[in-house]
Simulated scan of single mutants.
Amino acid sequence: MGRHVLVTGGAGYIGSHACKALAAAGYVPVTFDNLATGWAEAVKYGPFEQGDLLDRAALDAVFAKWQPIAVMHFAALSQVGEAVAQPGHYWRVNVGGSLNLIEAAAAAGCMDFVFSSTCATYGDQDGVVLNEDTPQRPSNPYGSSKRAIEEILRDFGVAHGLRHVIYRYFNVAGADPSGEVGEFHQPETHLIPLMLDVVAGKRAALTLHGTDYATPDGTCIRDYVHVSDLVDAHVLGLQWLEAGKGNRVFCLGTGAGFSVREVVTQARAVTNQEVPMNEGPRRPGDAMQLVSGSARAVEELGWRPTRSSLQQMIGDAWRWHQNGHYDK
C-alpha cells in the first residue's frame, strides 16, 4: 500500500490539480467527491470514491478501506452570492460536512489535515494587505462557514491531537500547463473562464459586477494565484505536518492585486481578441479589494509562486478553454 491521502473535492478544479501534484510527489490521492460541482473525468491520478461529506458512514468506510495518512480538504460550496441568499445551505454543507470529515479522521487516527480556507474569512478590509495576523471579520456566510471550520480544526487539535495546516487563499486561476485538467464549472462564475467564454463566442459579453468601487478604474481588485502554484503549497503543507512542525496558517497569493479591467486588458493581449463588456450592479457580499501578504509561506514553506503572472494564468486557461472540457 502506498501513502494514501484522502482528497475531498478531488474531482473539482483545485482538487484535481492537487491530486496531480500529490501523485508527482509520491503519494496516492484518493478522491472523495459527490460530483455536485466536480467531474469524474478529472479524477486521473488515483482511486475515486463517490460520496457525500454529510454521510458519516461513507466517510468511515473510506478511512477504513484506504487508511490515509492525511486529509486534504477542498470540498465546499463557494459562491458568495448564493451563500448570502442561502446561508442555511452553506452552514449545513460546509460546516456540517467538514465536522463529519474531521470527526471521521480523528476516529480513524488520521491526524494530518490540510484545509482549503479562504481570504473571505477577512471580510472587506480595504487598503490592507491581508496576512495571517489580520483579524477575521467575514462579511458573508461563505467566509463565516470557512472561519468556523478553522475553529473546529483548532478545537480538535487541543482535544485529539489533530494537526493542521490552514491555507487562506485568494483568486485561483489558470490550468495545468499540460492540459490534463483545468477549470470548468456549471454554471460558471469565475472571471477568467467567463471572459474566455466571451472571447470564444460562447457568451455575448462579460458583465462587470460593479464599476463604482473606490479603485483606480472603479472595478474590484483581486490577488490571483496560478492553480499549479497553489497546489504545490498544499504538498509542502503536507510535508510540513509530516516533519512534525506543528499547526500553522498560511496565506497564499502573490501580493499583487489586479482589477477586473486589468485582467480583461491582459486577456485581450493573450488571445489577440476583443472582450465585449456590459456594466452591471455590484454583487452582494463582494469586497472591493483583497490582496494577500504571503511572506510566511515563502519564508517558512519555501513556496515560490513561479507561474502566477497574469499572462501565464490567462494563457494556460486559454489553452485549456480551447481544448479541454468535462461532460456530465
Rank of each mutant, 00 (worst) to 15 (best):
M1D: 14
H4T: 08
V5Q: 10
V5L: 07
V5K: 04
V7C: 12
T8S: 15
A11V: 10
Y13L: 12
S16T: 08
A18R: 09
C19K: 03
C19D: 08
C19N: 10
C19M: 04
K20R: 15
L22F: 12
A23I: 00
A25C: 02
Y27G: 02
Y27D: 03
P29Y: 05
F32N: 00
N34V: 01
W39N: 02
A40V: 08
E41S: 15
V43N: 08
K44L: 15
G46S: 05
G51Q: 05
A57V: 12
A57E: 15
A58P: 05
D60R: 09
D60L: 10
F63T: 00
K65I: 01
K65P: 09
W66P: 11
W66V: 04
P68M: 04
V71T: 07
M72S: 13
M72F: 14
H73W: 04
A76S: 15
V80H: 09
A83H: 03
V84L: 07
P87W: 06
G88K: 12
H89K: 15
Y90K: 00
V93Y: 06
G97T: 04
G97R: 01
L99I: 13
L99Q: 15
N100T: 13
I102W: 13
A106L: 11
C110M: 03
F115V: 00
G123S: 05
D124T: 08
P135R: 07
P135Q: 02
Q136D: 00
R137C: 09
S139Y: 01
N140Q: 09
N140D: 06
A148K: 03
E150L: 02
E151S: 13
I152F: 13
L153N: 09
H160T: 09
I166N: 09
R168G: 06
F184S: 01
P187I: 02
I192Q: 10
L196G: 06
L196N: 03
V199I: 13
G201M: 06
G201I: 10
K202S: 05
H209L: 10
H209C: 13
D212E: 13
A214C: 05
D217P: 04
G218K: 10
T219K: 04
C220N: 09
R222W: 07
Y224N: 04
H226L: 03
S228G: 05
S228A: 14
V231W: 08
L236K: 15
Q239D: 14
L241R: 08
G244R: 04
G246N: 02
V249W: 11
F250L: 05
C251M: 13
L252C: 01
L252F: 00
T254M: 10
S259I: 03
S259R: 08
R261D: 00
V263T: 14
V263L: 14
V264Y: 11
Q266F: 02
A269Y: 11
A269N: 06
A269H: 14
V270F: 04
E274V: 12
P276E: 01
N278G: 10
E279S: 12
P284F: 10
D286E: 15
A287N: 09
Q289N: 09
Q289H: 11
V291S: 03
G293D: 14
R296Y: 13
V298R: 15
E299A: 13
T306N: 07
S308A: 07
Q312I: 03
M313E: 12
I314L: 08
W320V: 02
Q322E: 13
Y326H: 14
K328W: 12
